[in-house]
């Protein structure tokens, strides 16, 4: 017993190092796992309110641009509304078709990152505003990501610029589906993989969210096809998609809740 105590005392620096280093590695590994990275994120009370203070100082710098963006969006929505009442048909433009079972919240981005491999955003709405995990996040131009952790007043969004992200997507005019990923190379380009080789793809085609996930409604814009590669197997394409959103400059976002998601998920579990 004496010897064990002596050993610990003699090597206390090394043991402390191993303990703390092991702890950090454990936290890192845990962060690579989607549904477990809930502790220790930037959506906590202290860092959240610090980001809020910073935002309250810096928000004035972008007011003009924000206003222009809102006017542009209002113009699009208004023209859709007018066209709809006059001709009594649903317009076939790149509209976001949101039916009654979706709820939209608006939020403000406090912190955005796009330079690392696992990027997250922090927004100023949390569980007290009705936000919870697995809600979709998008802007008027296209999708941003998925809520992955919430606290009382803030939420963390797992950006599409995150190598863990998998989002269901489809080609707009053919309804062939694929999965949206990111290879951490460029903040403008994401990859759509597992697209059937029978899909009629060409450069410049629009990519939208598919209706298969319970997170996003069908038809939210993502981007346009930039480059098409046939996979080595020869059965599927992997497509480089250029995003409509400038992920490096995001202010206002919308959060969407699918009220049916619980029902759909319970059905899927029953089937298994």
């Amino acid at each position: 017993m004496q010897q064990i105590i002596n050993f610990v005392l003699r090597n206390k620096t090394f043991l402390m190092f191993m303990l703390l280093f092991g702890l950090s590695i454990a936290l890192t590994i845990q962060n690579h796992d989607y549904h477990r990275s809930k502790f220790l994120n930037s959506a906590n009370f202290i860092s959240g309110s610090l980001f809020e203070t910073k935002f309250s100082i810096t928000q004035y710098f972008g007011l003009k641009k924000d206003n222009e963006l809102l006017i542009e969006e209002n113009k699009n929505l208004r023209s859709q509304l007018l066209n709809q009442t006059q001709t009594e048909v649903i317009s076939t433009s790149d509209s976001v078709n949101i039916s009654g079972n979706y709820v939209i919240y608006s939020a403000q981005v406090y912190k955005n990152s796009y330079a690392s491999n696992n990027n997250y955003l922090t927004i100023n709405k949390g569980s007290k505003d009705g936000i919870s995990q697995d809600f979709g996040v998008f802007t008027s131009k296209g999708i941003i990501g998925i809520i992955d952790a919430t606290t009382n007043g803030y939420s963390r969004v797992q950006s599409i610029l995150n190598i863990k992200s998998r989002i269901n997507a489809q080609i707009k005019n053919s309804s062939h589906i694929g999965s949206l990923r990111w290879n951490a190379k460029s903040a403008q380009i994401v990859q759509m993989v597992d697209v059937s080789k029978f899909a009629p793809v060409k450069n410049g085609d629009t990519i939208i969210t598919g209706g298969q996930s319970t997170i996003f409604p069908k038809g939210i814009l993502i981007g346009v096809i930039n480059k098409i590669n046939l996979d080595p197997g020869g059965d599927t394409y992997s497509i480089d998609v250029e995003l409509f959103n400038d992920m490096t400059n995001i202010g206002h976002v919308y959060v969407v809740e699918n009220k049916d998601s619980k029902e759909i998920k319970s059905l899927e579990i029953d089937n298994e």
């Binding site: 950090s24 936290l27 890192t28 845990q30 994120n41 930037s42 990152s113 696992n118 997250y120 922090t122």
Partner: peptide, 16 residues
């Protein structure tokens, strides 16, 4: 790490 949502990479590098 908490500010940059990176799990424990900064902690590990600092301890090292």
């Amino acid at each position: 790490d908490i500010f940059s949502d990176s799990g424990g990479v900064h902690a590990a590098a600092s301890v090292f």
